[in-house]
């Protein structure tokens, strides 16, 4: 089978879906928009010669305060692997802060179930169409989304010899 170039095929078959292509460090990133994401992923999986048939990972990134500035605050990266040709491709979608909704690809990719829930929990992006909207990692009654850049680390002051007593007095100790 003839191997095809994913970027050229996408440009030919789905015009308008490829917003940008970044070639860096032996990796190809295809930037697309939210509406065409399911079509791009399905095309990459089902076209002979591409066959990116394994969804490795879905990751969300918060670009708040990033230099150089990113187009939108959030981005979601889909890493696809073609098991026949051993190639990896990253499909990236930028998500604005004002409308943090992504299309869920769970119907086509069963492996996307928990990664999508994780992003929903940790970054607060909503995946429209995902049947299970509960938090995945944090407790159900948790406030906020920890992996956002404006969420504090939740750091507690460390006890050293000079501030031991001061912190120890405030530290909650358990009773019997």
């Amino acid at each position: 089978m003839q191997l095809k170039d994913p970027v050229a095929s996408l440009r030919a078959e789905l015009p308008g879906a490829v917003l940008d292509v970044i070639e860096a460090l032996d990796e190809t990133t295809v930037v697309t928009d939210r509406a065409s994401l399911p079509h791009v992923l399905a095309f990459l999986r089902d076209t002979p010669g591409l066959q990116y048939n394994f969804l490795v990972d879905i990751t969300g990134v918060d670009y708040l305060g990033y230099t150089p500035p990113a187009p939108e605050r959030f981005a979601v990266c889909y890493h696809l692997l073609a098991m026949l040709s051993n190639r990896v491709l990253r499909v990236k979608v930028y998500v604005p802060e004002a409308d943090p909704v992504m299309p869920s690809i769970l119907a086509q990719w069963p492996a996307a179930n928990w990664p999508e829930r994780e992003i929903q929990d940790m970054l607060g992006l909503d995946f429209a169409g995902h049947p299970d909207k509960r938090r995945l990692l944090m407790p159900q009654d948790w406030d906020g989304h920890p992996l956002r850049k404006d969420y504090p680390l939740g750091y507690e002051t460390v006890q050293f010899s000079f501030n031991w007593q001061e912190i120890d007095a405030k530290k909650p100790y358990a009773k019997e």
Binding site: M122, R135, L136, L137, M138, P139, P146, L147, Y151, L153, G154, Y155
Partner: peptide, 14 residues
């Protein structure tokens, strides 16, 4: 899951 969620990714950012 999540009973052992350690926040490693967030901690690494700092």
């Amino acid at each position: 899951i999540g009973y052992l969620h350690t926040g490693i990714e967030k901690s690494m950012e700092s």
